[in-house]
């Protein structure tokens, strides 16, 4: 088993996360897809850190985690406030850009 397998796994997880974003309507599930994508990236970072023998990759993954956490906080707050006003958690309902 090579280290590249980790990266392949990361790629697969990333794609699944991306597909989730595209295919699901519930905002929270879409968010979870985004989280999955970020985690996949983290896995890739960690693998590369191991490959290059440099912990910088792990530091970057660390940063990604922090930022993802902040993002989740804000994103969920938005979802909650939207839900309060519109009683709906579907991303399809925020279509005011429709022309």
């Amino acid at each position: 088993m090579e280290l590249t397998h980790y990266v392949v796994l990361a790629a697969i997880l990333f794609s699944i996360g991306a597909a989730t974003v595209l295919l699901r309507r519930n905002a929270i599930i879409v968010f979870m897809g985004v989280e999955l994508m970020l985690n996949a990236t983290n896995l890739a970072f960690v693998t590369f850190a191991r490959m290059h023998g440099d912990v910088t990759g792990q530091v970057l993954a660390f940063f990604v985690m922090v930022v993802a956490a902040a993002e989740v906080v804000v994103g969920l707050a938005i979802i909650v406030s939207i839900f309060r006003t519109r009683r709906s958690a579907s991303v399809d309902d925020v279509n005011l850009l429709k022309s």
Partner: peptide
């Protein structure tokens, strides 16, 4: 992958905080 710190942080932050946050919001929603 020789990143124990990160692994622990993953559990604490991600699984512990972020996903719990998700569950709370699911409850609200």
């Amino acid at each position: 992958q020789e990143a124990p710190f990160l692994g622990v942080v993953q559990v604490v932050v991600y699984t512990g905080a972020v996903m719990m946050l998700f569950l709370f919001v699911l409850m609200l929603v």
